[in-house]
Structure formats: C-alpha cells, structure tokens
C-alpha cells in the first residue's frame, strides 16, 4: 500500500503556538491597566490610542521560557520612564533620579506585567529577572501581540513577542499559513 506524503504529519509536528493563539490584546491591556492602578497610582489610566514614540526611548522587559518563549516588553520615551519612576516612588523619590532608580522602577513594571502575562499562558514557564535597555528584536512578526497606549498623553508600547524566528516554510502571517 502506498501513501502520499501530504506533509500534514510533518506540519503538525512543527506546530508551535504563536502568542495570538494564547492571549489576546484585551487581556494584556487589562493586565497592564491593573498594574498601572496598583503601582503608578489609583487615578492613572492607560488610554488605548497610538502615539508616536520619540527617538530617545528605553525599554524594560522580562523573558518567558516555556511552551511559548518570548519577552514582554514595555517601551516609552526616556523622560516618560523617569516620570513613571517618580510616580512609583512617590514621596520617596529623590530630587534627582539616577539611571539605577529608573531601571529599577521601569523594570519592576515590566516584571509585574510580564509575571501576569506568564500566568495567563500555558505552563510550566520560567520568568527572567527584568532587564532595561534596547528592546529584544522581533524575530517573527506573526508572533507578536502589541498594544499602543498613552499614559498622561505620552506613548507607551507593550509588546508580547516571541523569541524564535518563524519555522521554515511558514509564511509571515498566520492568515497565510494555510497549505
């Protein structure tokens, strides 16, 4: 008996979930909104409107390693990251914030958002310590859930992005992934 190799088994073995299969933008937005109210302030809201990020930006992120592997990345203007840090520190904020204070505070927001995103994903997964600097590159445009928000009128982007490149033979968008 002969069988025809349709590639189905090979493809099914290659299936790797992308983030949009696992979490939607509304869930990430709800997680971020809760983190903002608890950490930044009771009246602090994130408005789901895109804004143009300036040239001088900074990112903070945590990595998730598990059935889905990637990063939860916050990106904003350096000046907005400083403002966020002051909001977190409230009356304990020093007159002049140094880079370490900003890295600590902005990193902690990524840690809280990332930890809750991780909890919403299939496990078991491990969460890294937060990092601050230039954001990890987007390796697979189909494996990204991105939110563009405004805080106090300033743009804040949240990107839940896979760490792995697309599998060979897959097309860049899921819509086109059919055989």
């Amino acid at each position: 008996m002969t069988t025809t190799d349709t590639g189905a088994r090979r493809r099914s073995g290659d299936v790797r979930p992308v983030i949009t299969d696992l979490i939607d933008a509304a869930t990430v937005e709800a997680i971020a909104a809760e983190a903002w109210v608890a950490l930044v302030g009771e009246d602090e809201v994130l408005v789901p409107l895109p804004g143009e990020l300036p040239v001088d930006i900074v990112s903070s992120w945590v990595d998730v390693v598990g059935p889905w592997t990637g990063s939860v990345v916050l990106t904003t203007a350096r000046s907005t990251a400083e403002e966020l840090s002051r909001a977190l520190l409230r009356d304990t904020a020093p007159a002049v914030l140094d880079d370490e204070d900003v890295a600590d505070a902005f990193g902690e927001i990524a840690n809280v958002v990332g930890g809750n995103v991780k909890a919403a994903l299939p496990g078991p997964s491990a969460l890294s310590l937060p990092q601050v600097g230039n954001a990890p590159l987007v390796r697979n445009p189909a494996d990204v859930c991105r939110l563009d928000l405004l805080w106090r009128g300033e743009p804040v982007a949240i990107s839940v992005q896979g760490a792995l490149p697309p599998l060979p033979g897959t097309t860049p968008t899921r819509k086109n992934e059919v055989s």
């Binding site: 950490l39 204070d101 600590d104 505070a105 990193g107 902690e108």
Partner: peptide
C-alpha cells in the same frame, strides 16, 4: 526584594 522601588511600595 531585589527592587528597591518594590520594597518601598511594600512598606507603603
């Protein structure tokens, strides 16, 4: 907590 900011938030 390794975050000084988070220690402050917990104390607050």
């Amino acid at each position: 907590d390794d975050s000084r900011v988070m220690r402050q938030i917990v104390i607050r």
